[in-house]
């Protein structure tokens, strides 16, 4: 079990999700638990609650998980995925209001240093327009 907050990347595009995850891996490293998903179950652009839940599982840490999303459905489906988690996990997952690629790298850098879930989210959200 990792002592670092996990990061989940949820994009409408599997390529964007994989690319953002690659940037986190190469720039920050493998020490931060990471999950990513993109695309609907039919293989097109979109997001799926099931895939998001699987990505959360992959990135799971008792310290919590921060989710980065791109557009509308990615956020609402991520909210649904969180609601479907076991009750003891629901409070440990947050969605960051931040750009998906930049936010993922910033959040992962903060997580790497052992920051709390709240600090990881705050760091990602520092990027957002004020």
């Amino acid at each position: 079990m990792s002592d670092k907050v996990g990061i989940v990347i949820v994009s409408h595009s599997p390529d964007v999700a994989r690319g953002a995850a690659d940037m986190v891996r190469q720039m920050v490293g493998n020490e931060v638990p990471l999950g990513f998903c993109g695309g609907n179950p039919e293989g097109g652009l979109g997001t799926s609650v099931e895939k998001i839940m699987k990505a959360i599982e992959e990135a799971w840490s008792e310290r919590g998980v921060a989710i980065l999303v791109d557009l509308g459905g990615a956020e609402t489906n991520s909210e649904m995925a969180i609601e479907m988690l076991p009750p003891d996990r629901q409070g440990k997952v947050v969605i960051c209001n931040a750009p998906i690629v930049e936010g993922a790298v910033m959040a992962a850098t903060e997580a790497w240093g052992g920051a709390t879930l709240e600090d990881v989210r705050r760091t990602a959200e520092e990027l957002s327009p004020q």
Binding site: Q26, M27, V105
Partner: peptide, 13 residues
């Protein structure tokens, strides 16, 4: 830039 910034921050932490 991005990559050096991450390295510097990680080292500082």
């Amino acid at each position: 830039h991005a990559r050096p910034s991450v390295k510097l921050t990680k080292l500082a932490k």
